[in-house]
Design a protein around this nucleic acid. Sequence first.
DNA 1: TGCATTCACTACACGCCGTTCAGTTTGTGT
DNA 2: ACACAAACTGAACGGCGTGTAGTGAATGCA
Lengths: 238, 238
Amino acid sequence: MGNETLNRRERLRAETAREIRTIALKLMGEGGPDAISLRAIAREMGMTAGAIYGYYATRDDLVTTLIGEVYTDLVDTVEAARDARPADDAAGRLLAWAEALRTWALANPQGFRLIYGDAVPGYRPPEGGPGALARGRACDGLVGLIADAWPHARAAHRHDRHQWSDFGEELGARVRAEHPGLPPAAIALALRAWGRMHGLLALELYGHLSPVAADPGALYRDEMLDLAGSLGLEPPAA
Amino acid sequence: MGNETLNRRERLRAETAREIRTIALKLMGEGGPDAISLRAIAREMGMTAGAIYGYYATRDDLVTTLIGEVYTDLVDTVEAARDARPADDAAGRLLAWAEALRTWALANPQGFRLIYGDAVPGYRPPEGGPGALARGRACDGLVGLIADAWPHARAAHRHDRHQWSDFGEELGARVRAEHPGLPPAAIALALRAWGRMHGLLALELYGHLSPVAADPGALYRDEMLDLAGSLGLEPPAA
DNA sequence: TGCATTCACTACACGCCGTTCAGTTTGTGT
DNA sequence: ACACAAACTGAACGGCGTGTAGTGAATGCA
């Protein structure tokens, strides 16, 4: 029973921590990453700002945790969209991933800013933690998409010049395990594909595209079709 | 003489305004956009924070002005790099622009964040102002690069499906004046090229690439060569 | 059951921030 | 010399992150 009551305290504690995160995400959704203030969260919870320090050592710690959660949600979403396409439809899987990424970003612009902008001034994605994990999954997913296209793409891209040491150790290890025979050049291609998705999206979400382009979505779609084409993937009829 | 003394006051005023901007840029270079605080600027100038309100109505106003200045500096730089190449070397001019963009961004990471991140929470590039002007020049430059490549690129890109109304009115007008005969599809291509430059750069500067790529510069260079190739431009011997 | 400990939380303080405003200084124009 | 306008100060307001001392209740042990 002592165990049970101890669990009870721990349960309450975990619940409070979750409430903090939930309210923080709500505030972020309403006012952007800067609206995540300990005082505002505490106000919303009927608490004092200092009380939060019992759950997170610092505001940045809280934000780091949130980044991990939001990033994980994003990756879950794009992976699900990819997996809704048959495994042999490499083009469809790539385009689904890309389209889901944009859809998610437009639905959660503040989340996108939280992940890819600097929520914390001078913030750098820490080595470990859930953020790094989600980024790893994102990279894995992109490499997977490229791996599926590699039979078609390998001819068009020279795969000398790249070595495993050019890339993150963990990522390289995972890729070698998951895709035996895939050369390191495929990782380079995957990261470049990431850049192509990220570029137009970041420009759009930060308001740099709206003054010059009426339909950023069409631009993005064109770009992704071009990307698929450059990978040797001919999109199916749809 | 009345005129001269009046000029003198105005000169002092302009000088103070410039000092404010200079110190603000210095602080930004040291501590990022968030380090631009009126109090810190005033402290550095031996003034009171309130005094700055005689020069800029609000902190955001000051930051907006700075964005314009920094953006203009960036565009000056990339234009100069482009124009250092002969007019008939379309590939070289494109690559020089892209390389200068990255070099500038790495030398002024905080400036890049100021322009393309959100310095002001929820900040949106205003319609008028020097920021819009610099962005216009950037777009013009990109369209110019595409225009030079258009004879080689037009075959590979379908140029139906895009209309002038898909793009900003001012941009469209300028393009039609500057490049008669160029179809609106070229603007789409230019904006997509912008995205390809911006994507890898933003990922790198916000620290998302460093955990997975040892040499983001090589990645960027590959990407730009691929871009040039997709435009039908074969880079010269170099 | 009684008591000591632990935990969550409050209250307050410190120093930072943007912004406003009444008052003071300073330099100009007549 | 005087009046005036501009430049600037100093203090204040509210908000922020962050510590710290204290309080009260729940917990674990005798």
